[in-house]
């Protein structure tokens, strides 16, 4: 079976009911995406599938053949942080950090469709992501500051999105 992750096509070997999460972690060695619950209750496993945030712990790999899959490793720009990641650093969001890949993927997806999210919008987009360290306030701050910076969001449909579709962001 073939899947496309971060713009690269990979040949994998797995039963088609295997959740995408485990294929990506175990076979592709991309361990930035985490396991938290296995039942779509925590958001730690969030990746983008054709730009949509998905809980990959319950998403069979058989269902995503041909789709564009993006992980936390795929949103930056060749060693440079994605503006949302940078906002996370600026607001000193992560504590243990375990939930943050999923949080960032949910936030990037939110900002891709909404460049000025209200508190309600943030609640709706982010409440599927648990942060056991309770960094919700900082996540909210980081999302708002990333929005204010008119973040250019990568286009997940483009192949090699992680390296070519993030525009430079100037602060202010």
């Amino acid at each position: 079976m073939e899947i496309t992750v971060n713009g690269k096509v990979h040949t994998i070997e797995a039963e088609s009911d295997t959740p995408l999460l485990w294929v990506v972690r175990e076979q592709l060695g991309l361990t930035g995406t985490k396991f938290g619950c296995g039942i779509a209750q925590c958001g730690a496993c969030t990746m983008h599938v054709n730009g949509k945030p998905m809980r990959t712990c319950v998403l069979p790999v058989g269902a995503v053949a041909g789709a564009d899959i993006t992980t936390i490793e795929g949103i930056g720009n060749q060693g440079e942080l994605h503006p949302v990641q940078q906002a996370w650093v600026d607001a000193q969001v992560p504590q243990c950090g375990y939930c943050q890949s999923g949080q960032i993927m949910s936030a990037v997806a939110l900002l891709a469709s909404n460049d000025d999210p209200s508190d309600e919008d943030i609640n709706r987009a982010m409440s599927g992501n648990v942060c056991r360290c309770g960094m919700y306030g900082r996540i909210r701050t980081a999302i708002k500051s990333a929005a204010k910076n008119e973040v250019a969001i990568y286009d997940p449909k483009a192949k090699g999105a992680q390296s070519s579709n993030v525009e430079e962001v100037t602060n202010g």
Partner: peptide, 21 residues
């Protein structure tokens, strides 16, 4: 001071126990 461990926790490179291989 910015926490020393934070940069690796936003790009997926931080290694947790579950990531050991």
């Amino acid at each position: 001071k910015p926490r020393l461990d934070i940069p690796s926790k936003v790009d997926g490179t931080a290694m947790f126990g579950i990531d050991a291989k």
